[in-house]
Amino acid sequence: MDFAALHRPGHPLLLPNVWEFGLAAHLVARGFPAVGTTSLGVSAAAGQPDGAPQTRRHTVALAESLRSLSAFVSVDIADGFSDDPAEVAALAAELAALGVVGVNLEDGRPDGSLTDLDHQCAKIRAVTAQVPSLFVNARTDTHWLTDNPPSVDVALARANAYVEAGASGIFIPGLKASSDIEAASSALDVPLNVLFQPGGKTLSDLAALGVARVSLGSLPYRVALAAAADSVLAVADGRAQSVTPPSYSEVVALLPS
């Protein structure tokens, strides 16, 4: 089965997002067939703003470390770390050469606006022309960058343009209403990816709405921060650890020899 075949409406791929090798190896050992990366986790680990251009090299380095895993790897490249479609395509080709099977390419900008539609389509066309085999998950932030999301039709207008440009899948983070999710999954000719939101719909709920991929985004990274901080505070407070970690030897066993 290839990576695209894992995207099945009604039986969604749960894609955990990682920022370093150890967690990815731990998840693959537990049976996950694919992992994605998280731009926030990679950027924060490098001490940089989320998606900053200077994190391009950290993203590539992570992809290179993950190539030894027996799993599909999809990489979050934010906005491509460039406004130049040719440079974005060159990054996609570099990642594909490392064994990466998919990329996540978003239209949200740091100032909260959306990239010009034609320009974003040019990026997608450049990537798909350079690496036709790559699964391009085109993300639109119509529902992510605002507290007052528009009609789902606004997201679908962008999504359909991205599909026409060559996108393999569509990611609409922030889509919450059941009617909107179902409408999007029914309207699109490619797999719909949504972001899991704690306290919201379960994986089973999303499956019933026709979702084909569920990403965890930065959630694992943020939970890891909380768990690590709590482990330190537990020692300081003289209480038991709230999470049982894998042993030193178990972690070592996950690493390349």
Rank of each mutant, 00 (worst) to 15 (best):
D141A: 02
W144I: 02
A29I: 00
N104S: 11
A92F: 01
L192T: 10
G31P: 10
R213I: 00
R57D: 12
R239N: 10
D111N: 09
S204F: 13
P33C: 03
A184I: 02
D76T: 00
D189K: 15
S231K: 14
L195Q: 09
L23P: 00
D237L: 15
L145D: 05
G10P: 05
R125P: 12
A92K: 00
S178H: 15
A63V: 03
L27V: 01
G217F: 09
G174L: 00
G22Q: 14
R67L: 05
F72P: 03
D2H: 14
D107L: 08
F171D: 02
R109M: 12
P9M: 06
R222Q: 15
D230G: 02
A138C: 01
V154D: 05
V214Q: 02
E87W: 01
S168N: 12
G22L: 07
L233F: 14
D50H: 12
R213W: 08
G80C: 09
S113G: 04
A207F: 07
P173I: 05
D180I: 02
P12G: 07
V223P: 06
A93K: 14
N104M: 08
E250Y: 03
A52G: 04
A25P: 01
L145S: 03
V190P: 05
D141Q: 07
A208V: 06
A61W: 00
H58I: 04
E64D: 14
V73W: 06
P16I: 00
L156T: 01
R57G: 12
T244M: 11
V35R: 04
R67Y: 06
D118L: 04
M1F: 14
P191Y: 11
A90R: 14
V252G: 09
E164P: 03
A90D: 12
S186N: 12
R8D: 06
A78G: 04
I172L: 00
V35G: 10
V154E: 11
Q130M: 04
A29W: 00
A236G: 09
V28S: 00
D83G: 13
A46K: 10
A207G: 06
V136C: 13
L69N: 02
A184N: 13
V243G: 09
P256A: 07
A234T: 11
S70C: 11
A63N: 01
E64L: 06
A227I: 13
G200H: 04
T59W: 11
V88W: 06
A157M: 13
I77K: 10
A89R: 08
A44F: 11
S82P: 15
A71C: 07
R139Q: 00
D83T: 15
D116H: 13
R239L: 09
T59G: 10
A183D: 13
A228T: 07
A34F: 11
A89E: 10
L91I: 04
G108R: 12
A63P: 04
A93I: 14
A97D: 13
L66P: 03
V223M: 12
V194W: 02
T55G: 08
L195E: 13
S43K: 09
L175D: 04
S43N: 11
V131F: 04
V101F: 01
V131W: 02
G200F: 08
N193D: 10
P16L: 02
A229R: 15
A165D: 04
F135Y: 15
A44V: 09
N104P: 01
P9R: 13
R30M: 07
S39L: 07
V35A: 07
P246F: 05
S168L: 08
V131D: 05
L15S: 09
